[in-house]
């Protein structure tokens, strides 16, 4: 069981706010903490994990929760 520190709900946000808000959020978090991102925009659901990996954070999981709904878990480096 992952200990989720914070949740960022960007469902209903339009392109590219899910990406921009996720990037801003992880900047403010501390090393080792886990961020849960909830997103309903397909392009961002694929792009956020890529961005997080390229920023050096650990991608724990990307899970499809339902129709056009994804949960992304990221551990801050």
């Amino acid at each position: 069981m992952v200990d989720i520190k914070e949740t960022l709900d960007v469902r209903g946000e339009v392109c590219p706010y899910p990406d921009v808000k996720s990037k801003r959020k992880v900047k403010k978090m501390n090393s080792g903490e886990v961020l849960q991102i909830l997103v309903d925009y397909p392009l961002s659901a694929e792009r956020i994990p890529e961005t997080m990996k390229s920023l050096g954070h650990e991608l724990i999981s990307v899970e499809k929760k339902g129709d056009a709904e994804w949960e992304i878990l990221v551990k801050i480096k």
Binding site: G12, E13, D40, P42
Partner: peptide
Amino acid sequence: AALISKEFKLRIPKQGKT
């Protein structure tokens, strides 16, 4: 395409101003 891949959903921006 969205229906088959289960990516169809009516989505309304959170903020009206959007």
